[in-house]
Amino acid sequence: MSQLVQLTVYGLANGAVLALAALGFVLIYKATSVINFAQGEFLLIGGYMFYTAFVVFQLPWAAAVILGVVGAAALGIVIERLVLRPLIGEDPIAVIMVTIGLAAVLRAVVQMFYGTTPRTMPAVLPTGSADILGASVPVNRLFAIVVAAVVLGGFGAFFRWSRHGIAMRAVADDQQAALVQGISVHRIFAMAWAMAAVSALIGGLLLADLTEVSQNLVGFGLIVFPVVILGGLDSIPGTIVGGLTIGLISQYAEGFSPGASQVAPYIALVLILLVRPYGLFGQVRIERV
């Protein structure tokens, strides 16, 4: 029982981070129909940017977070403008490959500056452990879940009520109609990339606080795919459900047989795709010649 509670908390904490990473992925895919294979690298860069501001420059953690958010947003905008915009309307294979190339460049740049040794940093979230149903559970994981929930809620509110959020949904729905309404699609594209980078940054710094800052953060980028397939590419609640489910599945699998967490999400993914080719919550599209 206590192991089950522990695995559940670990799974939910990982799932919350996954949901943040997946949110960024979905934002980009919905607004610009680009499949971003560099999402894991955004997590990585986010983690290292925070590390630089917080540990290397000794800034207070709040200032480091703000600096990180600004940096991530700038990075997202630059990447969109330089790399993705020239490829609008190209073959999906080309667009996928360009983000893969981008991922290699980003990873290499991080490696050039910081090497491959993992860095630890002083904990920001409170440490210690709490008792839940007789199981001892690290407090920082609980806090990570709360932080992720707040951020996801913030993004949800942004899309629901803010002017820019509604404009983004309009572009995702129909680009031409949005253009006719006077929405600048270019600006929305840039915004989508900036916000994706920011949500990945928050995921990255949560992960960095829970574990350590290392190249392994990239691994989270690939598990985003089962998450988005599970949650569907169209909905933010879907990414939350998907993130938590995949987080739990892989933790339970890990508890069942160590190492199984690497493959369990993909098996779940294949099973879902076999039954529902557009994911659990995805919209079925009708194709015409």
């Binding site: 790399v83 490959m97 360009v98 893969i100 190339g101 981008l102 991922a103 290699a104 460049v105 980003l106 990873r107 290499a108 740049v109 490696q111 050039m112």
Partner: peptide, 11 residues
């Protein structure tokens, strides 16, 4: 550098 060059070549 090799990884970066690989990525840059693709892009």
């Amino acid at each position: 550098v090799q990884v970066a060059a690989f990525g840059l070549v693709i892009v």
